Amino acid sequence: MIAVIDYDTGNTKSVGKALAHIGLEHVITADHAVIRSCDGLILPGVGAFARAMANIEERGLAVLVKELVSEGKPLLGICVGMQLLFDSSSEYGETSGLGLIPGAVVRLPPSNLKVPHIGWNQLHVKPATVFAPLDGENVYYVHSYYAKTDERYVVAKTDYGVQVPGIVQKQHVYGTQFHPEKSGDVGFKVLQYFKEVVVKCSSSQQSI
């Protein structure tokens, strides 16, 4: 069972529909007990980093998510949910994030490209990762800010004037700047890969 964490963000239902499409059992919830009982977590998100982080903290979800990650539960952050995985964001002033992956979220730099970055763009995926089959595929982005982090945590990039981390990972914590739930079959594959991670981690914990 996957917990799609509900903190009044805009894309929880669309994420839930995508999970249902691939046959992944899930629940959309902010209930701490229910979240604890699940095998993996998805942190969706649209809108501003500061408001999203405030909503999470008001519900006591920040502490809970960090606790469950420390216990080994896989987590996938989507769009703003991915940005929340980092140490901080400069959007509407400096705001602390969950600190699960080192790095900071900053605004896309001025260029001849439109900000926000809205639309389909190509992924360039590192080889020898679970996401390697997605190299060269196009996914759907909606964002004005991006993560600046060490290369070791970047699984895939997209070129948009700068190299935007499209997929990040630190151990069992994953994030996608793009929206898998809006990226068609490619997005479904991303969610399927996360499902496989959850199953693997759950099986490992049960065998201990």
Rank of each mutant, 00 (worst) to 15 (best):
M1V: 09
A3S: 01
V4A: 08
D8Q: 06
T9E: 13
T9A: 15
T12S: 03
T12C: 07
S14E: 12
V15E: 07
V15G: 07
K17S: 08
K17N: 10
A18Y: 12
A18P: 11
I22C: 11
L24M: 09
T29M: 01
A30Y: 09
A33E: 08
A33G: 05
I35L: 00
I35S: 00
R36P: 00
R36I: 00
S37F: 00
S37D: 04
S37E: 04
C38A: 05
L43E: 02
G47I: 12
G47R: 11
A48Q: 03
F49L: 04
A50W: 06
A50I: 06
A52I: 05
M53A: 10
A54Q: 14
A54Y: 13
E57S: 14
L61K: 07
A62F: 05
L64D: 03
V65R: 00
L68G: 03
P74N: 05
L75F: 07
G77R: 09
G77N: 13
V80E: 13
Q83N: 08
L85H: 12
F86C: 03
D87G: 03
D87P: 01
D87Y: 07
S89K: 08
S89G: 06
E91Q: 08
E91N: 07
E91D: 04
G93R: 07
L98F: 11
L100S: 09
L100R: 14
I101H: 01
P102F: 12
P102C: 03
P109H: 14
P109Y: 11
P109W: 11
P109S: 02
P110K: 15
P110C: 15
P110S: 15
L113A: 03
L113Y: 06
L113T: 05
K114V: 15
P116M: 14
H117L: 06
I118P: 10
G119D: 13
L123Q: 11
L123A: 10
V125A: 13
V125M: 13
P127A: 13
P127C: 12
A132N: 00
D135Q: 03
E137R: 13
N138M: 11
Y141Q: 04
V142R: 14
V142H: 13
Y145P: 01
Y146Q: 05
A147Y: 09
K148R: 12
T149Q: 08
T149K: 08
R152A: 11
Y153H: 10
V154L: 07
V154I: 15
V154A: 07
V155T: 11
K157Q: 00
K157I: 02
T158W: 14
T158N: 10
D159C: 06
G161I: 07
P165I: 01
P165N: 01
G166W: 07
V168C: 08
V168R: 02
Q169V: 07
Q171I: 09
V173G: 02
T176P: 01
T176A: 05
Q177R: 07
H179F: 02
E181Q: 03
G184F: 05
D185V: 06
G187E: 10
K189V: 02
V190Q: 06
L191G: 08
E196I: 06
V199T: 05
K200Y: 09
S202R: 09
S203P: 04
Q205K: 03
Q206W: 06
Q206I: 03
Q206M: 04
I208D: 13
